[in-house]
Design a binder for these strands. Structure first.
Lengths: 246, 246
DNA sequence: CGAATTATTGATTCTCTTCAAGCCGTGTGG
DNA sequence: CCACACGGCTTGAAGAGAATCAATAATTCG
């Protein structure tokens, strides 16, 4: 069944690694990516298999249902991972930030679509090539496995949120978790950037866009947060944490 | 914060492997467990580290927040994996069946409680011991990783269900997925056993017990299913699949 | 058998959705 | 420069689906 998946331009910018541009050794996200466990020789090996790939806002990295030929490291920017039901209902499974690896939950085909929420840079590998490297390198496999296990706990957290939390709690928990994620990649601030739109937040939290907007307004009115263009300032983190109550 | 976690008896039956009882080589769930990738000598090594552990209905294998000292293979029976919020709201993260491995999403402490829904037999390993074996055996690590990735896709499915499906769709999807899981472990029948109670189903699906009961009654009245003691007979699987619409 | 637990069903309430309108920042072209 | 359109966001009013409250029925278990 065909469904309108929105913007799907694929005129992405691709470039093979050349001697002139900085390689894996200088990669900005290396310390926080799966590659952090690799030695320099191993990095060289991997680098030979990698291609940089750049997307602009709205472009699709891969689409749900397509053959899963590639895996990716996110270097810069933010992507939205969505799953679509035949009738158009949408669930955002997550947002990928720099350092994230895309391709853990892969079967033969992508089960989600990945779309750029702004300018995005990724490092792409042929899935088979990457699998071969993984097969031969126990440390890399362990690193991927640790990520998969961590992703699993995140997914469990999200299941609890979707199943048992109120709209206000969902929004509060979302803002806090986003703050934590940004903190982990070095972007530490009480003002949390929101690279995604309200509809994306809604589809991530199992709500409607109107409810998300209302809850943000409510939190703003209660001076728990301050809505600013492109983001949110967390004013009363204690209260938010009490709401998010894990 | 302390919360009543219900039945917590720990008088579980423990037994070291002895020569007289059947070992890993004859294990009923070996072909469907993580152990399926191991050679016989490797199985012997693992067997030396294993203890059988038996629980009766209502007993707790491990509790949320406790130090995660052990990992488990489920040999027989069904367990409920729950996470509790401080205020008592509960989310059932999943049900473990024979062949399932418990301990993928582990950090230092268990993030869920595991309770027996009936008579349960498990194979227990010290977490450190098991980690050492995993570390040294790439095939086992790969097997665990594949399981983790599969669990991740299941978690994603559940997120979609919790976030975007109606009560009736949730119940229909649950019955079908349970049927599939039983089929995969050899228990193939149009009559699906329901080892868990209505409250467990409700907490798994993000509903209340009353809503689950109502939806089951509705499906029964529509002759899509037939409610039988301890289970459900799937009469109109097509209609269920249309409802579950993935 | 009788008590306790679990499940079903009905009546009512409430949270979130749906429908609808208006607002705001941005970009565009006359 | 301003009118206008467009997309994203907010806000309000009405409606629906599931929760809650309450009572009864069916099972399980001692």
């Amino acid at each position: 069944m065909l469904v309108d998946t929105g913007a799907c331009e694929r005129n992405v910018h691709l470039c093979h690694h050349g001697r002139s541009e900085p390689g894996c050794g200088d990669c900005a996200v290396r310390p926080i990516s799966v590659c952090s466990v690799l030695t320099l020789p191993e990095l060289d090996q991997l680098e030979a298999l990698s291609q940089h790939l750049t997307l602009d806002k709205g472009q699709t990295l891969f689409g749900q249902g397509e053959p899963a030929d590639f895996v990716f490291n996110v270097i810069e920017g933010c992507l939205r991972l969505t799953r679509l039901l035949p009738d158009g209902r949408r669930q955002v499974m997550g947002f990928a930030l720099p350092g994230d690896f895309l391709g853990l939950a892969l079967q033969e085909r992508y089960t989600v679509s990945a779309e750029a929420l702004g300018h995005v840079r990724t490092c792409r590998f042929d899935r088979e090539d990457f699998a071969a490297v993984t097969e031969a390198n126990a440390r890399l496999l362990k690193s991927l496995h640790d990520r998969a296990r961590f992703e699993l706990t995140l997914a469990h957290d999200q299941m609890l949120l979707l199943g048992r939390r109120t709209a206000e709690e969902k929004v509060a928990a979302f803002l806090l978790s986003l703050k934590d994620r940004f903190a982990r990649i070095g972007h530490n601030s009480v003002t949390v950037e929101l690279p995604m739109g309200r509809q994306d937040m809604a589809d991530y939290l199992g709500l409607t866009i109107e409810t998300v907007s209302r809850m943000l307004s409510r939190l703003d009115r209660a001076h728990s947060i301050l809505l600013v263009p492109g983001g949110v300032r967390l004013l009363d983190q204690d209260r938010l944490e009490r709401l998010a109550a894990s």
